[in-house]
Write a protein that binds this DNA or RNA. Sequence first.
DNA 1: ACCAAATAGTACGACATCGAACCAAAGTCA
DNA 2: TGACTTTGGTTCGATGTCGTACTATTTGGT
Lengths: 152, 152
Amino acid sequence: MDDDTLIFTFFNEIGIVSQLSQAFLNRHLPDGLHSSHFATLNHLYRVGNGTTPLAIANAMQVTKATMTHTLAVLEKRELVEIRANPSDGRSKTVFLTPAGRAFRLAAIGDVTAAMATVASLFDRAALEASLPTLQRVRKILDAERAHRSGGD
Amino acid sequence: MDDDTLIFTFFNEIGIVSQLSQAFLNRHLPDGLHSSHFATLNHLYRVGNGTTPLAIANAMQVTKATMTHTLAVLEKRELVEIRANPSDGRSKTVFLTPAGRAFRLAAIGDVTAAMATVASLFDRAALEASLPTLQRVRKILDAERAHRSGGD
DNA sequence: ACCAAATAGTACGACATCGAACCAAAGTCA
DNA sequence: TGACTTTGGTTCGATGTCGTACTATTTGGT
């Protein structure tokens, strides 16, 4: 298998696994929550409150337009609160509400429970071993994207 | 990191890499072709002609409704031809047209060229090493999905 | 042979995502 | 200070994907 084919195969597999895992999440998340909403809640929880929409969009690797939409959904459900950014009039800051925190916990519970049956089938060591590779690939693609859209 | 967290992290990383690679493809595929169309053309080329839409949908891990749409797009561009299935009145068969073949080659050329700059940054051995893991994960999720929707 | 259940594909409505165009606030530089 | 550029977010239109409901054909049991 030459390099190009390997790379195609690799990304093809990545794409399919991603689709399957997202489908899994979408099926098991409570109340019609979409995996992207879930990911955003988790990000807010991990990174902490007061982040700007753009920062979240970059972290999630979606466009800012998409993040506007995602945050609007979360805000309508009162899972996050969006305030003006005191240090920049163009910007906003995003906060997880208590309801958002609770919802995240509940969602994690549901997903974890649903995952219990399959989780045991995964080879923990193998997953752990491929993580650095994935992260490196992510960084490379990310840099390429930034470079493309930024300069050039 | 406990098992659940590892799995979450793993799928999160997979999702992001998938998004980035799809975005990369979408940016570099000619004539507004979407990565899913590209993947379908590649599948038809690899697996051979005369496959049914459902078989393609399963291989691509999308719903049959989605495949109906994808094939309609490809057919409108005359990259595939869809005929009745002689052995099953409900079914169809899909064929790559000469134009479809040519388009696929051109697309591969474009993408490969665009990828040349980043391809050298990938650690070939690492990608190769994580492929089996990805394939195993795919199989597990796939089986779970089939089980869920089929029985239960 | 007939009727029920399963199956392949389509139609429809909902929604996530994207790119491009746009607006408003900062920043920059003369 | 004032104009040009950059930057954070939103709006808009287009499109890919999904789930559900539906149609037509096939399969299977009696």
